[in-house]
Simulated assay, not measured.
Amino acid sequence: MTEPDTAVLDRIVDGETAVLLLEADGTVVDERTLAVERLPEEGRHEGAVFDVDLEGETLRELTYRSSETQDRRQAMQERFERLSERFDDE
């Protein structure tokens, strides 16, 4: 397995457990759960992107990437708008 370099917050369950999708080169390679308190405060929302520091299987540190989070959100919004325009044309 390729070493993950990025994590994306997929969801928060019951307000206590964060589900992270670990990515390597833009592809999801693993999923991890951890307590929400372990996330940087500014990144406690769905779609937040983090740099990942792993030691073996242990998640040591997450660093919130605000600009990457915004870029991905913008790209998703643009894709949604393109898809909705296709449906409007039909």
Rank of each mutant, 00 (worst) to 15 (best):
D51Y: 03
L20T: 03
T58K: 11
A48S: 15
G56P: 12
R11C: 09
M76F: 07
A35P: 12
G43T: 12
Y64G: 07
S66T: 12
R73S: 13
G43L: 06
P4T: 02
R44M: 08
G43Q: 11
V19H: 11
L54H: 08
A18E: 04
R11P: 00
T2D: 12
T33P: 00
D51H: 10
L20A: 04
L54R: 04
V8E: 14
T2S: 10
T17Q: 07
P40H: 11
E78T: 05
A48E: 07
R65A: 09
E55Q: 14
T63W: 01
G43A: 12
S66I: 02
V52N: 08
T6Y: 00
R38K: 13
H45P: 02
E61V: 00
A48W: 05
A75L: 13
L22R: 03
D71V: 09
V52C: 08
L9Y: 03
V36D: 09
V36C: 11
P4A: 06
E78A: 13
H45S: 13
T63H: 10
M76I: 04
A24P: 05
G26W: 05
R73A: 15
D5G: 15
A75W: 05
E68K: 13
R44N: 08
D5A: 09
Q77L: 14
R32Q: 11
E23F: 11
V29L: 03
T58R: 14
T69N: 07
V28K: 12
G15S: 03
R60H: 09
L34T: 13
V13W: 02
E68C: 03
R38P: 02
E68T: 13
T69Q: 07
L34K: 04
A18Y: 04
D53S: 09
A18S: 08
L20G: 07
V52Q: 10
M76W: 08
M1N: 01
R44T: 08
R38Q: 13
S66R: 14
E41H: 06
V19K: 02
E55M: 11
L59E: 10
V19F: 06
T6G: 01
S66W: 02
M1E: 02
D25C: 02
T69D: 08
D14L: 03
G56T: 10
T69R: 10
M1A: 06
M76T: 07
L34M: 14
R32A: 07
I12F: 02
T6D: 01
A24S: 15
R44I: 04
E3H: 05
G47V: 06
V29C: 05
G56W: 11
T2N: 05
A7L: 07
G43N: 09
E37G: 12
E41V: 15
L22K: 06
L9G: 07
A75D: 14
V8G: 04
E42P: 10
L21S: 10
V28C: 05
L54T: 11
E23W: 01
E16V: 09
E61Y: 00
T58E: 15
S67Q: 14
L22D: 02
L9C: 04
H45W: 01
G56N: 11
E42M: 10
F50L: 06
R11I: 01
H45R: 13
R38H: 14
E41K: 15
L39I: 12
A7Y: 01
L59A: 10
V29R: 07
E23N: 06
S67F: 06
